[in-house]
């Protein structure tokens, strides 16, 4: 009982880490642009595929003989995937979102465009790679640390640490740096900010780079932990992560981070104590009730509306 409880907590921490990392990406873009970037889950999926392609490429052409440490491969893969995912994120921003913003389209039309970009990424991937799932190559040898019946793999530790490190990193950027201050300023008042000489578009591009590289970290780590990739994996996990971010209080990094872990815990606990069929039902009911009681989420601040 006791050991299974701790085992579940470890699993929930790992599962929640993924939700948190994705939710942070949603939260960044939402905080600055007030745009639900529905394509974010699919950027995460693309990142996992990019990791898969790059590692396969490495094994095929560069490290043919093998015998290279898995950590080295990971250290090479992560920046490369982060770079390409950021390029994708910025490309989407430049081509799809910015023209609409500049034309002064209604906010919801930008959201719909994001939804469409997500569909294109999913189905383009499906058309390109076919419907069969891909197996992410195992680069790091799993070693199990176990004490008194609780098993922890090194991967789980890596994922959990990665989530906390990225959170601390983002928190530092948003709160301590000048560009972070600009990001907060834009979300506070987007009309006055350009008058203060802040390059709004540059800050937005930076936000997309941050968000996409976060999705890249999550995607590669997800591929390593659950090595089956399919084109629709980003959609469901993205929607859920967004719901988690909202429950935490979107627009605040702490809220998104907390919400991701909350959803992870709820899901793992439901699976281990009830049944995995009821996972979505119960977890969404709980989130719904939280939102009804506290409509702005845990960290959200209710804005008073004026006429």
């Amino acid at each position: 009982m006791f050991t299974s409880f701790f085992q579940n907590i470890i699993n929930a921490l790992q599962w929640g880490s993924f939700y948190s990392m994705i939710a942070l990406g949603y939260c960044l873009v939402y905080g600055v642009l007030r745009l639900i970037n529905f394509a974010h889950g699919d950027i995460f999926m693309v990142a996992a595929y990019l990791g898969f392609i790059f590692i396969t490429f490495l094994f095929k052409y560069i490290f043919v003989g093998g015998g290279v440490s898995g950590w080295l491969i990971l250290a090479i893969t992560l920046p490369v995937v982060m770079f390409f995912t950021s390029v994708l994120g910025v490309f989407i921003e430049r081509v799809a979102y910015r023209p609409l913003r500049e034309k002064g389209a209604h906010r919801l039309y930008v959201v719909i465009t994001a939804l469409m970009v997500g569909l294109i990424l999913e189905n383009g991937n499906l058309a390109l790679f076919g419907a069969s799932s891909r197996k992410f190559p195992a680069i790091i040898h799993r070693s199990v640390i176990s004490f008194s019946g609780v098993h922890i793999t090194n991967l789980k530790v890596l994922v959990i640490i990665a989530a906390f490190v990225t959170f601390a990193f983002l928190q530092a950027i948003v709160n301590k740096t000048k560009i972070g201050m600009a990001m907060r300023a834009i979300s506070y008042d987007k009309f006055a900010i350009p008058l203060m000489g802040i390059p709004v578009n540059k800050v937005i591009v930076f936000t997309f780079i941050l968000g996409s590289s976060l999705a890249a970290v999550a995607g590669v780590l997800f591929g390593m932990s659950y090595p089956v990739l399919n084109p629709y994996m980003g959609m469901i996990i993205g929607w859920k992560a967004f719901i988690a971010a909202v429950v935490g209080g979107i627009g605040d990094i702490k809220g998104a981070f907390l919400g991701g872990f909350l959803l992870g815990f709820i899901e793992i606990l439901i699976v281990s104590f009830f049944s995995s069929n009821l996972k979505d039902l119960i977890s969404f009911l709980i989130l719904l009730i939280i939102l009804v009681i506290k409509p702005t989420g845990f960290y959200g601040v209710a804005k008073s509306t004026k006429i």
Partner: peptide
Amino acid sequence: DYLAIITIA
């Protein structure tokens, strides 16, 4: 947006 989430849920 909060209502959007409720409808998705």
